[in-house]
Amino acid sequence: MREVDQAVAFLRTRLPAAPELALVLGSGLGGLADQMEDTVIIPYREVPGFPLSTAPGHAGRFVAGRLGGKNVLCMQGRFHYYEGHDMAAIALPVRVFKALGCRALVLTNAAGGVNWDFNVGDFMLITDHINFMGANPLRGENDDTIGPRFCDMTHVYDPGLQQVALQAAAAQNLVLRKGVYLGYMGPSFETPAEIRAFRTLGADAVGMSTVPEAIAASHCGLPVLGLSLITNMAAGMAGKRLSGDEVIEIANARGVVFQQLVKGIVAAL
């Protein structure tokens, strides 16, 4: 795929070392890049074929360096379907990670709690997802050099990586809940009726990202670890209106703890 080849060729001229792991830093996790050593910053606008990130709180750049003893390439800010990007643009960075030789992808996000047992500030290990975005990044002509026309989705979120995450959380005395993430197109928040329906479908958390990236990773054979920070209880659950500012506020408040968890996971991978 021409877009992947061009981006990879450019990044190889800028990266300090071949990355072992790739991280997509969602809301509240952007500060993790500040803990990296020997960093090189590459704005998305400089990478051939890359769109710009317009989501609030997303820096819109790659940060490459050392974290937890590993060579890591971070996306400090991601692309969302609700921003107007097509699914191919959202899948592009994932395919670039694979082509650069990354052996695992850590996807993080801020999410709304759907499970009544969850609380604001909880961390959730994504064990599976439901694609409710109405689109799929694999739609269209398939590139057989990247992955099969019909890719298996049985173990999108790698069981081995999940065990590493659970052990890292236990070592930090953190409760890491497990659950199903439902991807919703956005940018409007869900209605209370939709949340009731999503709970019936088996969702534990809901958000507007992660699913397209996870599908693209499964397609190209890149193992995925998914982590959510529950920044609010979903519509109709807390008896109040939802606000994007509140999501960012909670993400920032719990961000330091979330960052330490991810750092511990990276060190153990």
Rank of each mutant, 00 (worst) to 15 (best):
1 M>T: 14
1 M>P: 14
2 R>F: 13
2 R>N: 15
3 E>N: 12
4 V>C: 02
5 D>N: 08
7 A>C: 11
8 V>G: 03
9 A>T: 15
9 A>Q: 14
11 L>R: 08
12 R>F: 12
15 L>G: 09
17 A>Y: 14
21 L>D: 00
23 L>Q: 07
24 V>H: 04
25 L>W: 13
29 L>G: 00
33 A>P: 01
34 D>A: 09
36 M>S: 07
36 M>D: 08
37 E>H: 13
39 T>D: 04
39 T>Y: 09
40 V>Q: 03
43 P>I: 08
45 R>E: 15
47 V>Y: 10
47 V>E: 07
47 V>C: 05
49 G>Y: 05
51 P>N: 02
52 L>N: 07
56 P>R: 04
58 H>D: 07
59 A>R: 15
60 G>C: 03
63 V>M: 10
67 L>Q: 09
68 G>L: 01
68 G>C: 04
74 C>R: 02
77 G>P: 11
78 R>E: 11
79 F>T: 06
80 H>T: 09
83 E>V: 01
85 H>K: 03
88 A>V: 10
90 I>D: 02
93 P>D: 09
93 P>H: 05
95 R>Y: 15
96 V>C: 05
97 F>K: 00
97 F>A: 02
101 G>F: 12
103 R>G: 05
105 L>W: 13
108 T>S: 14
113 G>M: 10
116 W>E: 14
116 W>Y: 13
117 D>C: 00
117 D>H: 14
117 D>M: 04
118 F>I: 02
120 V>P: 04
120 V>L: 05
121 G>R: 02
121 G>P: 05
122 D>W: 08
123 F>H: 13
125 L>F: 11
129 H>R: 07
129 H>P: 14
131 N>V: 14
135 A>D: 15
138 L>S: 07
140 G>K: 09
141 E>K: 13
144 D>C: 02
147 G>R: 00
150 F>Y: 15
150 F>G: 04
151 C>T: 15
151 C>I: 10
152 D>S: 15
152 D>Q: 12
153 M>E: 13
157 Y>N: 08
159 P>Y: 12
160 G>L: 05
162 Q>R: 14
162 Q>C: 12
166 L>M: 13
166 L>T: 03
168 A>R: 01
172 Q>W: 06
177 R>S: 07
178 K>F: 12
181 Y>L: 02
183 G>L: 01
183 G>E: 06
184 Y>K: 00
184 Y>E: 08
186 G>C: 05
189 F>L: 03
189 F>E: 06
192 P>H: 03
195 I>N: 00
196 R>M: 08
202 G>S: 00
202 G>R: 02
203 A>P: 11
204 D>H: 11
204 D>P: 03
206 V>K: 02
210 T>N: 14
213 E>I: 02
213 E>N: 03
214 A>Y: 08
214 A>K: 03
215 I>M: 09
216 A>G: 07
218 S>L: 05
221 G>I: 12
224 V>Q: 00
229 L>P: 08
233 M>T: 02
234 A>M: 10
235 A>C: 09
237 M>V: 10
237 M>K: 11
238 A>C: 01
238 A>M: 10
240 K>L: 11
241 R>F: 08
245 D>C: 00
248 I>A: 06
251 A>R: 00
253 A>Y: 08
256 V>S: 13
259 Q>H: 01
266 V>Y: 01
267 A>K: 06
269 L>S: 00
